[in-house]
Write a protein that binds this DNA or RNA. Structure first.
Lengths: 226, 226
DNA sequence: ATTATAGTTGAGCATAACTCAATAAAATGA
DNA sequence: TCATTTTATTGAGTTATGCTCAACTATAAT
């Protein structure tokens, strides 16, 4: 290298500090511009670094993306677990999970969009890893459904996978609508409608009058007759 | 250009013929390798052409992709319309649509995957156009639900959009599973389970007492009256 | 102060989408 | 049949960006 070209006199950070810094900047860029429209050079420039440094720590642009996704999944999975622990009853839990996911998507629409795009991508390694994180996160819904079946609240024979696909597939479409037109989601309303549809669809209760209403009526009639 | 370099003595086709040829080759490549892993040069080479020719006709790689998608949507939309015309009753129609879509995805998994990936992409023009085609295709389900509400078979207050998101969102997840592990889908089983969940979820029927329960009650009531 | 470690650099490579002026095959017209 | 026009096709660039790597130097260790 010619010694007249000025080398940047950068403050050098520890491995961990630099990685964290890059990770945060990358997340911001991906959220703002999406994966394809973000360049590594641009992430680096925002931190007064050059591309090479980023590649040194993360190997590839997709590797960087994957680390961003991992930290996001860790966040929301932990948050979901905390919240869900306090909720009792299958329908309430179903509602809670639905509402939580809608809320997450409403908060972090762009990042969720990036994650979903990447999880459907063609890099088998990346997809598989995101898939794994997703199964951890959506596993809670599966568990709720299985418990509901055991407790007799949900029809035996109900496929937990079908329910998972129904809930998360539906909400994904909500996301794409949101990303498309930018309008925020009416979280409570959609959560209630979706929960109602799904719970009616899989509930073991044979009636959908108000809780216990028909049973009480039948009891009263029978008593009257007797 | 130096005149010792051999120029290819190609048979020249009409605009229409060449476009059709390129379109077919592009579809095959996209299906086989996905959008990202397909190069325009490769599509051209397969037809003994050069990149320039493809760009001349389609402007851009994404433009070419969009044309492939358009023709696919036209195919399946027409096919769905034909089949649906012969089916009567809300539940049957719901089942038919669900089954048809699962069948389509099972037949053309790779192309469907490419379409979905692109429709979630960042090119607003492309996404909007695919969105439009999709609304035409999925509009039939919306119409079925609305008709069902009018006929009193489906609870008034049911959001047709929610139902659309539920059905197509669910099936999309089936697609990603299929693409992931390559295992073909049990079309009939999933169609039946999904239809059952959704129809129960939105059906106007208010009671479904246990087998014989209503009959017994009626008998008792009649006896009392007598 | 010297040495070792490792964070950082920047020039350069490879690939693939895209452009465009040049070229020749076919169509048109005399 | 020949000349002219039209247009399908070419291929040599240009550009953008992910990625590599050997050189370089700030900092810590001895």
């Amino acid at each position: 290298m010619s010694n007249n070209s000025e080398r940047k006199k950068s403050t050098r950070l520890s491995r961990e500090a630099r990685q964290a810094e890059i990770l945060a900047a990358a997340r911001a860029s991906f959220e703002k511009n999406g994966y394809e429209n973000t360049t590594v050079a641009e992430i680096a420039a925002g931190l007064d670094l050059v591309e090479g440094t980023v590649f040194h720590y993360f190997g590839s642009k997709r590797g960087l993306m994957l680390r961003v996704i991992e930290s996001f999944y860790q966040e929301i999975t932990a948050e979901l677990e905390d919240g869900l622990a306090a909720v009792k009853g299958t329908r309430n839990r179903l509602y809670y999970i639905t509402r939580f996911h809608l809320h997450t998507i409403n908060r972090s629409a762009e990042l969720c969009a990036v994650i979903l795009r990447e999880s459907r991508g063609l890099e088998p390694d990346i997809s598989a890893e995101i898939h794994r994180l997703n199964r951890l996160y959506t596993g809670h819904l599966i568990a709720v459904i299985k418990a509901g079946i055991s407790a007799g609240e949900i029809r035996s024979g109900t496929s937990p996978t079908l329910v998972r696909n129904t809930v998360y597939g539906n909400i994904e479409h909500v996301l794409w609508d949101r990303v498309g037109d930018g309008k925020p989601v009416d979280v409570e309303r959609v959560a209630e409608e979706l929960t109602e549809l799904v719970f009616r669809g899989i509930s073991a209760e044979e009636t959908r009058l108000e809780e216990g209403e028909v049973a009480a009526l039948v009891k009263r009639l029978n008593r009257l007759i007797d």
